[in-house]
Structure formats: C-alpha cells, structure tokens
Amino acid sequence: MDWVERVEELLYDGESIQERVPVGAGGVVVTSHRLLAFTPDRDGPNFSQVDRPNVDGVEVDTGGEFRFLELSVKAIVVGVALLVAGFTVSLDGMVQGISLESNGAASAVGIGGMLGLLQTMLGLLAQLDDLMRVFGGLALAFGAVVLAVYLRSRERLLVVAVAGGDDIELAAPDDDAVLDRLRAALGSSPERPDAPTDDAVA
C-alpha cells in the first residue's frame, strides 16, 4: 500500500502538501503542518510524523549496526593484549628447572599427592604463554570477521533530525537533489490561502 501517493487521506482539514518524495518502499511528505515519513522497509513503525517546528533538519549520513563495531573493537583489543603478553612473558622459563616430584620422604608424610598436583599446575603454567598467543590470534581473527560484517551493514541514510525525539532514518535516494527539495520545502512558509493581501490591509 503506497501511502506516499495516498497521503491526502491522512491530511488534517486545511493541511496542504508542500513536497512529496518517494524513497525506496516508502518516502517523505512535507505538508504545511507536518513531516510524514513512511518506512515500511525498516524496523519499527511503518509511519512517523513530526510537527514542522520539531524538525531540526534533513541530512544524508552513513550508518551501520553499531553493536558489530563495538564487538569487533573489544575482540581486537583483547587479541592484541593476549598476543603482547604471550610474546613478552616467558612463563616456561620461569618454571623451568622446578621439580616437585614426590620422593619417599614426601610420601611418608602424606604430601606426595599434593606435590604431584602442584607439578601438574606448573606444567600448565609453562604452556600459558603459548595459549595466550593462540587465543590472541583467534580473538583477532574473530574481530576482523565481525568488522567485515559491520562494514557490509553500512548504508547511506536519509536522516530527519527531530528535536526532543528519535531521529527518523530512511534509505537515502540516489539523487542528491532530493535533499535540496526537502530542505526547500521545510524552509518554505505554509500556504495560507485565506491570509489577507496587502491591498486588503490597505
């Protein structure tokens, strides 16, 4: 249902159309009283309206899924930190030569099992720097993939800035002259056919 072409059904008494711009599956209509935005191809409501005094402007911007960018930055930071730690800290050198193998005396006092557990933990600690390098590389790879997803999600948007409310976003048209038409319509004075003329005032 193309409400951009049928917008007359939504007008108030005395309201007139200043500009009508189809954009994608919807569009923008500027009237003497309001800006009407039809966005059936985007998330959220299919229709939004803003009183003209609350329209702060119309711009073309580029937007994307910010949560992907945020996740990518976090993964890259973690990956770099793990790689730096893995290459600068040599944990295997710190524990090299330490042996807690239980002997007969240790077994006699009942701590042989505990010493064996500690020796196992030292062995794992010696491999920790290798693990940090592996997981650091995986985190960087994950961050790069998510960054690519974010870049693919970016698109040109026609943004209607709303004072005191959420901005309205539509897919930007290919013709940049549309922006000038909307700005001109929003800057024009409402039609007042019943306004007195200069001759009548005189």
Rank of each mutant, 00 (worst) to 15 (best):
Y12P: 01
Y12W: 12
V21A: 13
Q96P: 00
V134P: 03
L179W: 03
R156S: 02
G97F: 14
E15I: 15
V159D: 01
L131R: 10
D166P: 00
V29P: 01
V55R: 00
G24A: 10
G44D: 08
L125E: 05
L151C: 04
F47K: 02
R34K: 05
M121C: 03
L71D: 11
A163N: 08
V50C: 11
D129S: 12
R156H: 00
L147V: 04
V78R: 02
A144Y: 14
S107M: 13
A161T: 10
D13L: 09
V160R: 12
A171K: 15
G27M: 03
V145F: 01
R156G: 00
S90P: 14
D13K: 05
G104W: 15
G63P: 00
V159Q: 03
E169S: 04
Q49M: 07
F142L: 12
L138D: 07
E191R: 10
V109M: 02
E15P: 05
Q119F: 07
E101H: 15
H33K: 08
A184F: 07
F68D: 10
A148T: 15
R192G: 01
P45F: 08
L147C: 06
H33T: 09
E8N: 09
L118C: 11
L186S: 09
A25F: 10
D175F: 12
P45V: 09
G64F: 11
G113V: 12
F47S: 05
G79V: 13
G143E: 06
T31L: 07
F135T: 15
V60R: 03
E9R: 11
Y12R: 06
G110M: 08
P22N: 01
F87E: 11
S102Y: 02
A184R: 13
V160A: 11
L128C: 05
D41S: 08
D167N: 13
Q96F: 09
N103S: 10
L11E: 06
G24W: 05
F38P: 04
L158K: 11
S32W: 03
S16V: 05
F135R: 02
S189E: 11
P53Y: 04
L117G: 03
V60K: 03
V60P: 02
E65N: 13
D61F: 06
Q18V: 10
A75R: 14
D166G: 07
V21Y: 06
E8R: 12
L35A: 05
V89Y: 09
A185Q: 11
Y12F: 07
R152F: 07
L158F: 06
A202N: 14
D130T: 15
G44C: 08
M94Q: 14
V28G: 03
G110L: 13
A200W: 14
L35N: 07
E19C: 06
Y12L: 12
Y12A: 11
V162A: 04
F142C: 05
G187E: 00
G123M: 04
D198L: 05
D129Y: 02
G63Y: 06
I17Y: 00
R181F: 09
L182P: 10
V7S: 03
G93P: 08
D167H: 08
D13C: 06
V77S: 02
F135A: 10
P45R: 06
A37G: 01
L117N: 14
D51E: 12
L69I: 02
D129V: 06
L10A: 14
V162H: 07
F87W: 14
G63M: 09
S99Y: 02
F66I: 14
A108E: 15
A25Q: 13
